[in-house]
Amino acid sequence: MHELSIAQSMVELAEQQARQHNAEAIEELELEIGCLAGIELFALDFALESSVKGTMLENARIVRRHIDGQGRCGDCEAVFTVSTLFTPCPVCGSYAVNILKGKELRLKSIVIK
């Protein structure tokens, strides 16, 4: 259940940014989560629900942007979509795949008032 630590880090990071801008509350939290980030979304929602209580994010809308996985084959250089960390290259079948996208776990923006 590392999602709880992740949720708490999100709250901490968002509040810190909001305070720097003298905000009263955070109305929206925009997250970017790659499909290979190792985050169970249901667990994250559950963890966020309890982590935001009593914070500036208590009533914030959570917007999640999903990022598809992308890999480049280390053998033939083909670039392709990956849905798992062990997707082989569709061109040459190699597992020597370097992940280019999909591991993001970022706080993209906040809307404050």
Binding site: I6, L13, Q17, A23, L107, K108, S109, I110, V111, I112
Partner: peptide, 16 residues
């Protein structure tokens, strides 16, 4: 529109 959007663009695990 007294709401403002702040671009944060930070890794959530940044502190760790």
């Amino acid at each position: 529109d007294d709401r403002r959007t702040i671009a944060v663009e930070q890794d959530i695990l940044q502190r760790n």
